[in-house]
Design a protein around this nucleic acid. Structure first.
Length: 519
RNA sequence: CGCGGCGUGGAGCAGCCCGGUUAGCUCGCCAGGCUCAUAACCUGGAGGUCACAAGUUCAAAUCUUGUCGCCGCAACCA
C-alpha cells in the first residue's frame, strides 16, 4: 500500500513506419511535462508509451526492406526510444504490441468481451481489390470510379465472414457519459464534436477481425482471424500495467488519469475505447486530452510535402531544453502550433538566453568577483521578493492551474513575463554592481533576493526544462535537495540555512552561459 | 446547404464564453539609459477604423446575421 496517490498516464502509441518527427515528439513532450509535474507533486506516476506494430503497413515496410518483421519492429522501437531518451521523455513503460505478453493479454480481454456477449459473427461486405488483397472504403470506390488507384483495375464487391464488436450497444451510455462528464474530453470543443457525432451519425458495430493475415494476434475464439489494429492498439493502455496477468498492479493503476493523444484519433479514444472497456466490465479513462498538430512554416507536415522535421535535426544545433522550451512555449497544446527556424531562434534567444540565462549570469558574477563567492552573514536571512506586489501563493497557483490544464504555453508565459522580467528589472533598479562599492552589506541583500528569485524560477521550470532548471538550482547552495522540491516550495521566500555560496562552476570568475545564443 | 477552426499595429499571438478602464504580450523597428551580465539588461516611442457589412445595445474586438478570404477534419499520413 503506497501512501502516495497514483497517477497513470499514456500517450498514443506510434506506428513505426518511419522515425518520429516533431509532431509525434510534441505529444510525448506534453505528456512528459505532466508526468514530471505530478512526480514533483508527490504522485506515484506511471507513464506509458509504445509502438503499434500489429498493422499491415508495418509488415509491408519490413518486407519491402527485406527484413524479418519482428526484427524490423524491434529495431524501430530502439530508434524511437533513442529519440525519446534524447528529449528526456520520462516514460516508465514502453510497450511493443508485437510482443507475446501484450498479445496474450489482448486475447484475454477480447475473450472477456466475447463472453460478455459484445462480439458476434457476421459478414463484411465491401469493395475489394484483388491486387492489393484488401478492402477499399466506399469513398475510394466513389472517387475513383470504382477502380483501384494502385492497380487500375475495377474493385469487386466481396463479402467475407468477420467478427463485429457491438459498439452500438453503448450509444446511449456514451452520449450520457460525454454530456455528464465535462472533464473527460479536453479541450472542450472536441467534446462538442464527439457529442455531435453521436447525435447525428451514431455508432455502428465495427468489424474487429481480419481474415488471412499472418501478422497480428489471433482471436482466441476463432484462430482463423487476426484482430483489427485498433482493438489491439488501445489495449496497450491496460496490458502495459498488468491487465491479463497481474490484476493487483492493474487495478491499482486503472482507470487512466490522462490519455494524451492527437486530435485525429479523438474518436477512437473517446467513443470506441470507453465502449470496449465497458464491454469488458472496466471503467472508462478519467480524461483524454486531444492535442493539436505541429505545422512547419505554416504548412502541414507530411511525407508528401517533403517537409518532415525530426527532433534530432533541431537539437543538433541547440539543446534538448531549448527544444523543449520552444514547443512548450510556442505551441498551445490544445491547438495547432507552428515551427519555423526563425521563430525558434527568436524565442530561444530572447526568453532563454537573454532573460533566464543572462539573469543567472548576472546573479552569480558579482558574488563570485566581489565576495569570493560567499555572502557572509546571510545565513538565516529571509529574502525579499524581487517582484513588486506579487502574491507568491497566488502566482504559483496560477502556474499550477495552467500546468494541470496542459496550458503549458501560458504557464511559461506567466513565469517569464510576470516573474523573470520583473526580476531583471529589480537588478537594474537596485544596481548591486554600484552598491557593492558604496554599501557592501546592502548589496548582499539585493543579491540574496535575486538568488531567491532564481530558486523559485528553477522550481517552477523543473517539469519543462529539467536539466537547465537543475543547473540553475545547483548554482547556489539552496538547502533542499533538488530531487525533493515541489511547487509548494516556490510559494514562500526561504532563508538559506548557511551563508549564500556560489556553487556553480566558474571560468574566469564567470559561470558558463546556460543558454548560448544561437543563430 | 457535411463538421470545425481562423482572420487583432511589420511578424507571431492573447483577449471574445460572462459586452463597459488609455485593446494586452513576445519579436522586430526608433530614441535614450546602464555597464553586473550571454552585443545581454532597463526606460520611453512610433505603428492597429480588432477581415468586411448590417443588426441588438446607453455601450461591441467581445452578442446576432450575412459576405469575403485562409485552413483543418471527414480517408490507419501524429
Amino acid at each position: 500500500m503506497s501512501a502516495k496517490p497514483k497517477w497513470f498516464q499514456t500517450t498514443a502509441i506510434d506506428y513505426p513506419n518511419s522515425r518520429p518527427h516533431i509532431g509525434t515528439a510534441f505529444e510525448k513532450l506534453g505528456a512528459d511535462v505532466q508526468a514530471r509535474y505530478r512526480r514533483m507533486e508527490g504522485y506515484d506516476v506511471t507513464f506509458l508509451m509504445g509502438n503499434d506494430e500489429n498493422t499491415l503497413k508495418v509488415a509491408d515496410k519490413a518486407n519491402e526492406l527485406g527484413l524479418d518483421v519482428q526484427a524490423y519492429c524491434d529495431d524501430m522501437a530502439r530508434q524511437f526510444r533513442e529519440v525519446w531518451a534524447v528529449l528526456d521523455i520520462s516514460y516508465d513503460v514502453f510497450i511493443q504490441t508485437s510482443h507475446e505478453r501484450h498479445k496474450a493479454c489482448c486475447r484475454k480481454f477480447i475473450q472477456k468481451v466475447y463472453d460478455n456477449g459484445y462480439i458476434y459473427k457476421g459478414e463484411y461486405q465491401g469493395w475489394y481489390c484483388a491486387g492489393c488483397e484488401e478492402f477499399k472504403s466506399e469513398k475510394d470506390h466513389a472517387e475513383n470510379a470504382g477502380q483501384c488507384t494502385n492497380h487500375l483495375r475495377p474493385l469487386t464487391r466481396r463479402s467475407e465472414p468477420c467478427y463485429y464488436f457491438r459498439q452500438s450497444a453503448f450509444q446511449d451510455r456514451l452520449l450520457k457519459f460525454l454530456q455528464d462528464t465535462p472533464g473527460f474530453l479536453q479541450p472542450e470543443n472536441r467534446r462538442n464534436e464527439m457529442i455531435g457525432w453521436l447525435e447525428t451519425k451514431g455508432l455502428d458495430d465495427i468489424n474487429i477481425s481480419r481474415l488471412g493475415e499472418a501478422w497480428g494476434f489471433r482471436l482466441p475464439f476463432d484462430e482463423e482471424f487476426t484482430s483489427y489494429v485498433w482493438f489491439d492498439a488501445l489495449l496497450t493502455y491496460i496490458t502495459g500495467i498488468g491487465y491479463g496477468d497481474d490484476e493487483v498492479t492493474f487495478l491499482a493503476q486503472w482507470p487512466c488519469d490522462t490519455h494524451f493523444i492527437g486530435k485525429d484519433i479523438t474518436r477512437f479514444h473517446t467513443l470506441l475505447w470507453p465502449a470496449m472497456l465497458w464491454a469488458a466490465g472496466l471503467p472508462a479513462p478519467t480524461k483524454v486530452f486531444s492535442h493539436g498538430f505541429v505545422t512547419v512554416d505554416g504548412t502541414k507536415m507530411g511525407k508528401s510535402m517533403g517537409n518532415v522535421v525530426q527532433p534530432l535535426e533541431i537539437i543538433a544545433n541547440s539543446s534538448v531544453d531549448i527544444y523543449r522550451y520552444f514547443f512548450l512555449r510556442e505551441c498551445a497544446y490544445s491547438g495547432d502550433g507552428d515551427y519555423s527556424g526563425q521563430r525558434f531562434e527568436e524565442v530561444c534567444n530572447s526568453e532563454l538566453a537573454n532573460n533566464l540565462g543572462n539573469m543567472l549570469s548576472r546573479v552569480i558574477t558579482i558574488p563570485a568577483k566581489s565576495y569570493d563567492s560567499v555572502l557572509e552573514g546571510t545565513a538565516g536571512v529571509v529574502p525579499q521578493s524581487t517582484v513588486e506586489g506579487i502574491d507568491l501563493k497566488a502566482f504559483v497557483a496560477t502556474v499550477r492551474g495552467h500546468v494541470e490544464a496542459c496550458r503549458y504555453n501560458l504557464a511559461l508565459q506567466a513565469i517569464v513575463n510576470d516573474f523573470l522580467t520583473p526580476s531583471n528589472r529589480y537588478i537594474d533598479t537596485n544596481k548591486p554592481w554600484s552598491l557593492v562599492k558604496t554599501d557592501k552589506e546592502a548589496a548582499k541583500l539585493v543579491l540574496l533576493n535575486m538568488a531567491e528569485a532564481l530558486r523559485i524560477a528553477a522550481i517552477l521550470l523543473k517539469p519543462f526544462i529539467p536539466r537547465s532548471a537543475e543547473a540553475i538550482y545547483k548554482s547556489v547552495n539552496y538547502a533542499k535537495p533538488w530531487g525533493d522540491v515541489t511547487y509548494a516550495d516556490a510559494t514562500t521566500l526561504q532563508a538559506l540555512p548557511s551563508d549564500f555560496r556560489v556553487t556553480a562552476e566558474l571560468i574566469d570568475g564567470k559561470p558558463k552561459p546556460l543558454f548560448p545564443r544561437i543563430g
